[in-house]
Amino acid sequence: MTQTLNEIPDFKTLSPRVDQVGVEERVARFNTRSIKKDSKMYALKLALSMVDLTTLEGMDSPGKVRQLCYKAMHPHEKLEDIPKVAAVCVYPSFVRLAKETLSGSGINVASVATAFPSGWAPMKAKLDEVRYCVDEGADEIDMVISRGEFLKGNYGYIYDEVAAVKEACGSAHLKVILETGELQTLDNVRRASDISMYAGADFIKTSTGKISPAATQPVTLVMLEAIRDFYYKTGKKIGMKPAGGIRDAKLAIRYLVMVKETLGIDWLDPDLFRFGASSLANDLLMQIVKQQTGAYQSLDYFSKD
């Protein structure tokens, strides 16, 4: 049975319940997977190709953004045969600069928008911001949902908001940030995921990185399961982006195990899975070098941009 997307479901009853204890047990079981040798190398490179290199600071500067773009294109000059990262994620003011710096590299520019990170702004301002980013050249828009409205139970508002932003995006890809640290319960995470996907999200994303906790494995698993159910119903493949808190290669591989065993190998692709992270890339590089040479090298050998 394929449900067409123009039917708007009842979001109060759409989402199946989530059992937190069961989710945590499942995560614990994923984490017993032992990834060695070639499969580890494969995973490290795959993870690197999925990184959205991110800088979202009040003190960002054109220089910093340029450095980040250069890092994205040349993660580690000493290594051959390593992938580029998937995208660079910046504030709207830096989209044009990033786009120019990255031109011809095949690396996407993502911009946060819609009054990131809190989402407290009038709808018109949010849509204007999205259009601005797209005009500046953003390939991907990372929006935030209005958590205040969601927690009020105003699910229709969230649906309309995501649908409006999607429209404003035009051909740019839309990632919807749920800010799961503020939604707090897994039932809420599941419901917000469903609403976002039905409203037109191309990706769903855990966090802004400004709220703790940011991405966690249980939250990510619940979102992956929501993506799976949406795919079963509609045949449409939605992407997933955990963001914030994924700092080392070991944890990144555990996320990939979850993706592989929950959604299958089709999702092991930067088009459908991303890591929002700033320091992960260097740890991945360090582990790749370690796998190749057998020895860890000092962090000083890896550029920090």
Binding site: Y42, Y232, I265
Partner: peptide, 17 residues
């Protein structure tokens, strides 16, 4: 008869551990 099945074969396989 279900059309939207997941694909678990090929791609990234775990090495023996």
């Amino acid at each position: 008869k279900r059309p939207n099945r997941l694909n678990f074969t090929g791609g990234w396989n775990y090495d023996p551990a």
